[in-house]
Design a protein around this nucleic acid. Sequence first.
DNA 1: GGAAACAACTTAAACGCTTAACCTGCGTTG
DNA 2: CAACGCAGGTTAAGCGTTTAAGTTGTTTCC
Lengths: 390, 390
Amino acid sequence: MGYHVDLNIVKIFLIVYTPPHPAGPNWSKENRLPTPSNNRAKSLTILDVAKAAGVSTATVSNVLNKTGKVGDKTQRLVLSTVKLLGYVPDAHARRLASGAGKTFGIIVSDIENPFFPEVIKSFETRARQLGYEAILSDTNYDPRRTREAAERMMEHKVRGVAVMTSEISLKLIHELARRRIAVTFLDLAPVREYVSKLKIDYVAGIQQIVQYLYELGHRRIAFIAGRPGLKSNVVRLKAYEKSMRAVGLEPGPILRGDLRFEGGLAAGHAIAKLNPRPTAVMAINDLTAVGVIKGLLQAGVRVPDEISITGFDKTRLAEYSNPTITTVDIHREMLGKIAADALHELSVSSNPQGKEYLIGAELIVGESSGPAPVEERSEVRAAFASIPPM
Amino acid sequence: MGYHVDLNIVKIFLIVYTPPHPAGPNWSKENRLPTPSNNRAKSLTILDVAKAAGVSTATVSNVLNKTGKVGDKTQRLVLSTVKLLGYVPDAHARRLASGAGKTFGIIVSDIENPFFPEVIKSFETRARQLGYEAILSDTNYDPRRTREAAERMMEHKVRGVAVMTSEISLKLIHELARRRIAVTFLDLAPVREYVSKLKIDYVAGIQQIVQYLYELGHRRIAFIAGRPGLKSNVVRLKAYEKSMRAVGLEPGPILRGDLRFEGGLAAGHAIAKLNPRPTAVMAINDLTAVGVIKGLLQAGVRVPDEISITGFDKTRLAEYSNPTITTVDIHREMLGKIAADALHELSVSSNPQGKEYLIGAELIVGESSGPAPVEERSEVRAAFASIPPM
DNA sequence: GGAAACAACTTAAACGCTTAACCTGCGTTG
DNA sequence: CAACGCAGGTTAAGCGTTTAAGTTGTTTCC
């Protein structure tokens, strides 16, 4: 029952307050006759309430659903009976009887990724306002789990699903749509019946960073990419290349990352050794940026004096980091809200044709970026001379 | 339809691909006759499958539930029919008919607080392994929403609820328990029928930090508290005071924080001005620690050379921070897993008496702490002389 | 003053599934 | 060879709601 301090052991102690009895996890099946799973716990039903109040079940139902078909007096009677008995209606019976449940689903890749909680929260908040319940599924980046998540949504007969992950096949999306379940999707899927599209303006965000760095005198701007498989990553990379060319700069060097701290760290070390070293680094997200900064600092390169770093997504991390990170706010809270609005519109409208929503991006300047180092300035001026004005 | 770059405007553009039609949000109610919300979409039922396969609904059900009562050949026939038709069973009808649904709920304060996603994930993962579905409710620290969350759990007839927030009344807990819904709770509630208790060993965690700092020669160790209202915060504060006295040190100074970055920042500035300045600061959580470090750095105090900082909770932040933070791992992932296990045991056992689970804490040394500054050492030796060995 | 309209209910038929109880035919068994 | 057991089904009675349709008793209106 006691315990001792040992830094290397996960200490979990089980203190059983009750006298030990045979119902442990390994309890043999033979004597498991009267488990609560078997005897249906006769719970309070609407009929009990009706009897107690001396009315019909229909009246109770009408009171609970505020249809306005019940007289004032009866209404109060029913309500007080409900309170007295502690009756809570059964959500499942309700849904079954009424046909259409007011539920939305949201599917995300990874709830631990700081990107998602905010989206989930705003989605759920907005859904509530519109009178929907929300259920969440986390796929853990696993396509099989994604299919399971979609199936769960169908089983629960949701009215709409906000798909916030890319590990999902178009086929699955269409399967949902065919069942008349509204879907919002990020980027990939084309708009069609029951399917709307949420598009984050990555291109504009990247453009703003390049523009900003350019104006600070940076000319060698590296890019730390993410996982090549993810479409949104490819989009950002392309946008980087295009924006660079737009201001007359050659893209590169481009380093591989993994969207995680570790990848950024490695990239930071690599960049420190580069010659000539870039004067600015665009990381594909904040987490990578934090890693890059750490890597550079470990290698003795000062940020932002010697090199500027930028992130993307404006997670809280950007704010907490030391130095704070220059990043792009893609308005994650809008993402969730708009998803809910879009689903609502699709499921309420008589014409369920999808739409496309574009969500803007906004540059947020932090401490991790500054003017290009002075020794670069002469070069800059030379560059100015040879590059035509935009 | 176009858009222009403006850093101060949230840019959200709606591009409607479809020809405009009258079903906008402000559409008048008169002509909303045939909305999809009204006409029950006759969806595929088990009867359709049964007919198509030429068997009874009971057989289909038995196949789907793998009761083993169906012959091999029929089984295959049914399964292929299901696939062919794209039939998905209705979760609500299922639950209603079978009485006991296999669902757990989890109630958290704030999904955006990095503490929770990890707990949720491990809870959900474990619940799945045990064969349960999980539904999530976020209370946003609002007691009213907490009540709603609990009601939602009752409506959904969950078998158990993991309550991970403290903004909940004992009354509510008991109401759940009375309905034979298993509950796990943090700290506050006493164990009883259907209620188990998950206790994090904060005391041991704090003790380890004090011990560790003491051994590094620190004698003036400040504490940054959280919100006085939260019970878990009070526990930590008390543990700090007790641990300090246990090694023969006077507790204090104790500064007020808010569990957030901002509070830490303010505390950091305050500490920089203190005279004599503490040589170490224990922050109540990692986020506060990050703030403290930032505040101190801004005031020109070096970490850890001049002052050591410790956090608590071992969030990813501790790892990403610069310097990395010495913290305490309270095994959040265990919290979720154990909650699921505890609920399962309660709901399966014939004797639903709760138990108490103690989850150990573990010191994780980072870069934010180190030996006390040398100029303090003489003082330390004096202290050693006068303090009896532990 | 009688038809019509209405407010305030009640009745009972779904909703889509599970499951206890029942049936049927075939191989075993004493 | 009658009796039995059992594998592999089927039938039908719920599960707890909602809601269309029906039933009152009371106004309203010409």
